[in-house]
């Protein structure tokens, strides 16, 4: 497969890579940069947080992020209301000079499940303000339809709760989403723990994956980033190639016709 002709289209931009990578949880910034490079990702997530004036370490992290040359996707992680998310999105747009936003509005601290009601309110407002919203959402079909109604051109349903590494927990819902929204770019965001799970997402027809913990918390994040990159390419190629139909019964792959010895069986 020639990847130069199989591009990921999000809003009005195209990407060669279908791997969006987070920038948190690495042991140090140098390791983060090396993992981003090994991933081949062109689109990385980051965030904004308060910093104690006494512990202010300048702009070292920000400089390192800029040096990656990647497109930036700021998030609204930790926000629990539409108002918080909208204000943090505005702060991100100004500081990062991008109208792209990964919209997170968390509704429950136990599983970090998105709040669907606040999410739709925030998405509606942000799109009116000119943002390109990529909402982190559940796999609920009706929620996804409402987000599309609000103007979201890309959706990011969860595979599993953030940081769990459990893979695609609800394949029935995810497959339904893919079938009901055939032209909407769908990115599996959160919950992926291994390259095989990422490959499975692409095999199911999802357009890309976004993950962080599985790479950052690997023993060797750089090697794991490379492993995910290969798996994502493999999954995408498999989807385009078309998977065989599963069968209940065995079917020989080697032709039966011309089988030697069969006539020698004693009666």
């Amino acid at each position: 497969m020639n990847t130069s002709t199989d591009l990921l289209k999000l809003y009005d931009e195209t990407f060669n890579s279908r791997f969006l990578l987070g920038t948190a949880l690495y042991r140090n910034p140098e390791e983060m940069s090396a993992a981003i490079k090994a991933s081949g990702s062109q689109f990385i997530t980051l965030s904004l947080r308060q910093q104690n004036p006494a512990k202010n370490d300048g702009d070292a992290f920000w400089q390192m992020i800029k040096n990656t040359g990647c497109k930036l996707l700021p998030n609204t992680a930790g926000c629990k209301s539409a108002k918080e998310a909208i204000n943090l999105a505005e702060m991100s747009r100004e500081l990062f000079e991008t109208s792209w936003i990964k919209l997170e509005v968390i509704g429950d601290d136990y599983n970090l499940q998105p709040d669907p009601f606040e999410l739709v309110i925030a998405a509606t407002q942000l799109i009116k303000r000119g943002f390109k919203v990529l909402p982190y959402c559940t796999d609920d079909l009706v929620l996804c339809l409402r987000l599309i109604d609000a103007g979201c051109e890309v959706l990011m349903p969860w595979g599993a709760p953030i940081g769990t590494g459990r893979g695609l927990m609800n394949k029935y819902h995810l497959k339904s989403l893919r079938e009901r929204l055939p032209t909407t770019p769908l990115i599996i965001d959160a919950g992926l723990g291994s390259p095989s799970q990422a490959a499975e997402a692409l095999e199911l027809g999802f357009d890309a994956v976004l993950l962080n913990t599985a790479v950052a918390k690997a023993d060797d994040p750089v090697l794991m980033a490379h492993a995910f990159s290969l798996a994502i390419q493999a999954g995408r190629s498999a989807y385009l190639a078309g998977l065989m139909q599963r069968r209940q019964t065995a079917s020989p792959s080697t032709p039966i016709l011309g089988q030697p010895f069969w006539h020698q069986q004693s009666s």
Binding site: T23, L25, T45, S47, Q50, N75, E94, F96
Partner: peptide, 24 residues
Amino acid sequence: KAQYGQTTLSHNDAVDIVKPIGGG
């Protein structure tokens, strides 16, 4: 940012000053 110079702070105002950090 354009309003920093003319926005005055009142008693008990809560100010958030945020910086880039890693995020997922």
